[in-house]
């Protein structure tokens, strides 16, 4: 089964306040986490986003698309990245989420993915 681990953290309150050394240490922890997932053969993708203010939202207003600045959700913690993993069951997905560095200062949401159909020709 595939799950996506959505990583929510407070970018302004936490991430931007870290010193360079602290940020490097956090980065190393994420690398270790990704490496462990890779070693277990369960890593499908590991993505890290640029900060929330680089996001754009697109809606349709009448005939035209309307582009807004900033991320969709106005929550205290922002979506900073995601891991997509392939596991045997929800328990394994939760076990990985519990190891994810984000939970020390943020929240990890896990969502199961629908099995993708065969790729279009």
């Amino acid at each position: 089964m595939r799950y996506i681990l959505l990583l929510y953290q407070d970018e302004t309150g936490f991430w931007f306040r870290l010193s360079d050394a602290e940020r490097a240490a956090e980065g190393a922890r994420y690398e270790a986490f990704a490496r462990a997932l890779g070693e277990a053969g369960q890593l499908v993708a590991a993505e890290r986003f640029e900060p929330y203010y680089t996001a754009r939202t697109v809606r349709r207003a009448g005939d035209r698309p309307a582009v807004g600045e900033g991320a969709y959700a106005d929550t205290p913690e922002q979506l900073g990245g995601a891991f997509i993993i392939e596991v045997a069951d929800e328990e394994e997905a939760l076990a990985w989420a519990a190891r994810c560095p984000t939970i020390g200062h943020g929240v990890v949401e896990i969502r199961r993915l629908w099995q993708p159909p065969a790729a279009p020709p």
């Binding site: 190393a28 922890r29 690398e31 270790a32 990704a34 490496r35 462990a36 070693e39 519990a98 190891r99």
Partner: peptide, 18 residues
Amino acid sequence: YAMAIGLEQDPAVRRFLL
């Protein structure tokens, strides 16, 4: 050690391994 750190849930044990 990097693997162990990536697999550990408990922050105190992680600090120890680090």
